[in-house]
C-alpha cells in the first residue's frame, strides 16, 4: 500500500462502517486520483470529514432508505418478499423509522406531507427499486401543490405506477388522474325475477375505450402527464437513441391513434444516453 492510498484509507475511516462497505474501494481510488492530480488542496480533507460526519448524523433518520439502496440486493429482495407476504407493505415497517410510519389503509386519502419519500417497492429480475414520491406526485412536471395534497393508496397483485415500474403489493396514485389504478372490479348484482329465478347483472368498471394520442417527440413529463390523465397505465422503458433528444418519447406501444381500453397499459420508450 503506497502512502497516498494509506492517507486515503485513513481519511475514509471518518465514514461509518456500513458506508465504507459499499463505497470504500471506489472512494479510495477517487481520492488517490484526486491527490495525485491535485496534491495541494487544503479544503479536501476537511470536506471529507464534514461529509462523513453528516452521513453519520443522518444515519438514524434515513436508515430505511439505506437499507433499500445500500444493502446487497438479495437481502433486500428477501426482506421485501417477506414483507409483502406478511402484510403487503411490511417492508417499511421492518426496515426502520419512516415519517410517522405507514398509516394507510385501502382507499383512504392521505395528505401529501404524510407520505414517505419512498412510496413503493418493486421487484424485478435482478432488480429492486422504489418509486420516489416527487416523481409520482408530479408526473406532469407541475409542482406538488397542484396535487391538492392528495394521493390514494392502491393495492393490486400487479400494479403499475405512473412511473411505470411493475411490482406486487401496494402503490399510490394521484387522485382523479388514474382511474385505471383504482382497483375497480366488475360488480355482480343479483336480482329476483318474477318467476322466482335469479338474474345476474354485471356492472362493469367505469372505464371505456379511448383513442391514444400521439406523444412521440414530447418531453417525458408532458407525455406521461397526458397519458396518465387519460387513465391509461404508463410503463416507461429506457431506449438508447442517438436521434431523439434525451428525455423525449421515442415510441409508444400501442402507437398513437390506436384504440385502447382506458385501463390498459401503454409502454413508452424514453430516450436515455448509453
Amino acid at each position: 500500500m503506497n502512502s497516498v492510498e494509506r492517507r486515503a484509507r485513513r481519511l475514509l475511516r471518518w465514514y461509518p462502517r456500513w458506508w465504507r462497505e459499499t463505497h470504500e474501494e471506489e472512494f479510495v481510488v477517487l481520492l488517490e486520483d484526486s491527490m495525485v492530480d491535485r496534491p495541494f488542496w487544503p479544503g479536501r480533507s476537511l470536506n471529507i470529514v464534514m461529509n462523513a460526519l453528516r452521513v453519520r448524523s443522518e444515519q438514524s433518520r434515513t436508515s430505511y432508505r439505506r437499507l433499500l439502496v445500500s444493502s446487497s440486493a438479495p437481502l433486500v429482495v428477501l426482506i421485501a418478499v417477506i414483507g409483502f407476504a406478511t402484510n403487503g407493505f411490511g417492508l417499511l415497517s421492518v426496515s426502520g423509522p419512516t415519517k410517522g410510519g405507514m398509516p394507510y389503509s385501502q382507499n383512504k386519502i392521505v395528505p401529501y406531507n404524510k407520505i414517505p419519500d419512498y412510496l413503493s417497492v418493486y421487484i424485478g429480475p435482478n432488480k429492486v427499486g422504489y418509486t420516489p414520491k416527487a416523481y409520482l406526485a408530479a408526473p406532469d412536471g407541475s409542482s406538488n401543490d397542484s396535487l391538492d395534497g392528495r394521493i390514494a393508496p392502491v393495492f393490486a397483485s400487479n400494479l403499475t405506477t405512473l412511473l411505470g415500474h411493475e411490482y406486487p403489493g401496494i402503490g399510490f396514485v394521484r387522485l382523479g388522474t388514474s382511474p385505471w389504478a383504482l382497483s375497480c372490479k366488475p360488480e355482480s348484482v343479483y336480482s329476483e325475477t318474477a318467476g322466482g329465478g335469479q338474474t345476474i347483472t354485471t356492472i362493469p368498471c367505469p372505464s371505456t375505450t379511448l383513442v391514444l394520442p400521439n406523444v412521440v417527440g414530447m418531453v417525458t413529463p408532458t407525455a406521461v402527464g397526458e397519458l396518465s390523465g387519460l387513465g391509461v397505465g404508463v410503463v416507461i422503458q429506457d431506449v438508447h437513441s442517438t436521434s431523439v433528444p434525451l428525455g423525449h418519447i421515442v415510441w409508444t406501444s400501442p402507437r398513437g391513434g390506436a384504440t385502447v381500453h382506458a385501463r390498459q397499459q401503454v409502454v413508452v420508450g424514453i430516450s436515455v444516453p448509453n
Binding site: E26, V29, Y135, G247
Partner: peptide, 28 residues
C-alpha cells in the same frame, strides 16, 4: 437514493454511474 442515477458493475476498482430515465426527466 432518489432513483435518478444508478451504480453500474465496478470496472476494476472504479464504479461507473449511469443516469436513469427518471434522472433524465428530472434534469430536463
Amino acid at each position: 437514493d432518489h432513483g435518478l442515477i444508478e451504480g453500474l458493475e465496478a470496472v476494476g476498482r472504479r464504479r461507473p454511474y449511469k443516469i436513469t430515465a427518471v434522472g433524465a426527466t428530472a434534469l430536463m
